[in-house]
Every structure is written in structure tokens, then in C-alpha cells.
Write a protein that binds this DNA or RNA. Structure first.
Length: 285
DNA sequence: AAGTAATCCTGATCGC
DNA sequence: TGCGATCAGGATTACT
């Protein structure tokens, strides 16, 4: 959704100025901020791309891209030049678009888990002829990608010796799924978060993948509208999430399906929300 | 080698 | 009113 909102604003636009307010937001840029500014200033952007939670904007005529990761709290805001900046703005790009004129792209991030970087584009191992930033090369395709290979994913699950939620969150296996999406898809599929992948039947795995696609698709559809109001949000928390969460954050509330209170457990240093009646560990028969 | 735990990071919120 | 403790989870790292 961020990508589609950003595309009309930045594609074909040139970077006129770069301001870095907090160098920690350049954690993934492997050189000083002066280098980031030098390489970005004057660059002309091609169309933004995405893989999993990584977004990048290729730089025209160079085998490089501006890589953006939003972390948990990151946002990309489109602003008129001169508009007040959000207090938590870490990096600000002054843009010049050939048709729309001047525009500002602000990278806002509270917790600084997100980042911007200039990175080299390298051949994508899984897509012949395509390129991705070097730091994105190990990220798998996401399940909404037409090239996502279902059979291969199921085979990888069967081969693995771990819990299903761990696998869903492993971006080298399947990308784009965060903690919220994982809990929601597992709830919809009636699968316990720690169900061993090797003991998940093929039909249940199919159900799960279908639900993952549904959840991701809904989120994209609701968040990814237009770019009308200078405000291009992005975070996963608006729209869809505010009113249609069945499990995530619902601990203590009745399961929408069976009425049993949703439980929250610590898992992988984060919360896991599930219904203890609908989502049980199952041994393969 | 594969699986897992620890780590980073700060603003909002809560309790006292 | 102020202060400290608590909480949130992406991806990488450092282990076992």
C-alpha cells in the first residue's frame, strides 16, 4: 500500500535536497550520512518496488536503489514544500516532479527500527533477469506475488522442524507476514501457533496459505488507496486493523467464532494471540 | 546446518 | 506533577 501510494509521486521525480535529522535511521546504509546525501542528491527515481516488508526505489541510470524499511513504526509521508514536519521526522527528501512540481517525502519513525539506505542492485536468485537490493536478496517472495510457488512452500514446511508461526515469520521462507497477520491468519485457519510444521496436514497448510493471502489482500486493499490528502499513511494500524481484528490484541475478549476468551502468550519475544478452543495442537493422523 | 534466543530502540501509557 | 517501569515487534546477531 505504501508502494502504490508512493508510485505516482516519486516515479520520474528528481531528488533536489536531502536532510538527515537522525543518523540512526541510516543504520542499513553502510557508509556515513554524507555519502547517503551525496549519492541521493540529483538522483532520478524509477518506479518503486516491493518485496515483503522492504520497499525500494531504483535510481535511473544506476544500478542502485533507495531502500526503505518501515520497521514497526515507520511512515512515509508526502508533504507540500514548507508544510510543518512531524516531530519524529528522521529524514526528509525534497523532490521535484516533472508534472506535479515540488514535493517533500518525509521518513517518520518513532522507534527507529526502520531505515533508509542506498544499496546496490544485484541479480535476484529466484527471478531470472530481475534485480533486487543486495540487502533484500535473501527475502522470499510474498504469497501475493504471482511467482510465489505454493508447492515449494508446502515442501519447505514439511521439511522443517519448527512451529508454524516461527515459519510464517521467517522472511526467507515466505515474506510480508508480521505478528498481527500471523495471528489473524492462524486464527482464521484454526491452527495453534506452535503447531509443528512437519505435522501440519497438507489441507490445513493450504487453508493457512489461503487465509494468509486473504489477510494480506485485505490489508493492501484498505490501506492502499490514494494519495489525495498529502497524507500517505502506511502503518498497519489504520483502516482494516482498527475494526476487524479477531485475535490480535483481543486477549480477554470472546472469540468471535466460539465465545471462549482469547488468550495471549509470550512467544518469540512477542505476543501470540489465539483461541484455546478453536486453535489446538493436532497430531497428524 | 538448522533452530532459537537475545538484541536493538523510544514514545506513549500507566501506576504511584 | 513527576518519575520510573512497562510495552510494542521487525530483522539481524550470536549462540547452541
Amino acid at each position: 500500500m505504501v508502494r502504490s501510494g508512493l508510485a505516482p509521486a516519486v516515479t520520474g521525480a528528481t531528488v533536489a535536497s536531502v536532510e538527515v535529522f537522525d543518523e540512526r535511521s541510516l543504520r542499513r546504509h553502510d557508509a556515513p550520512s554524507e555519502d547517503f546525501i551525496d549519492r541521493l542528491t540529483g538522483a532520478r527515481f524509477d518506479e518503486p518496488r516491493r518485496r515483503g516488508k522492504f520497499l525500494w526505489i531504483p535510481i535511473a541510470g544506476r544500478s542502485q536503489a533507495l531502500v526503505i524499511h518501515l520497521g514497526m513504526s515507520g511512515q512515509v509521508l508526502l508533504r507540500e514544500p514548507g508544510a510543518p514536519r512531524d516531530r519524529l521526522t528522521r529524514i526528509s527528501l525534497g523532490m521535484e516532479h516533472p508534472e506535479h512540481g515540488p514535493l517533500r517525502v518525509d521518513f517518520v519513525d518513532q522507534r527507529i527500527f526502520g531505515s533508509m539506505a542506498i544499496d546496490d542492485l544485484v541479480a535476484a536468485a529466484d527471478v531470472p533477469g530481475d534485480t533486487v537490493p543486495a540487502q533484500v536478496a535473501h527475502i522470499a517472495r510474498d504469497p501475493l506475488d504471482a511467482g510465489f510457488d505454493d508447492a515449494r512452500f508446502f515442501a519447505a514446511l514439511a521439511r522443517r522442524n519448527t512451529g508454524i508461526k516461527r515459519a510464517l515469520l521467517d522472511q526467507t521462507l515466505i515474506s510480508g507476514i508480521g505478528n498481527i497477520y500471523a495471528d489473524e491468519a492462524l486464527w482464521a485457519s484454526r491452527i495453534h501457533y506452535d503447531q509443528p510444521t512437519g505435522e501440519l496436514s497438507r489441507p490445513r497448510a493450504r487453508t493457512l496459505l489461503a487465509q494468509v493471502r486473504l489477510v494480506l489482500g485485505k490489508a493492501l486493499a484498505e490501506g492502499g488507496t490514494s494519495f489525495d490528502a498529502q497524507y500517505l499513511n502506511v502503518n498497519g494500524e489504520s483502516g482494516y486493523f482498527s475494526h476487524s481484528l479477531n485475535a490480535y490484541g483481543q486477549q480477554g475478549n470472546p472469540c468471535p467464532r466460539c465465545g471462549r476468551p482469547i488468550v495471549r502468550e509470550q512467544f518469540m519475544n512477542r505476543g501470540s494471540h489465539f483461541c484455546p478452543r478453536c486453535q489446538r495442537l493436532v497430531a497428524r493422523r
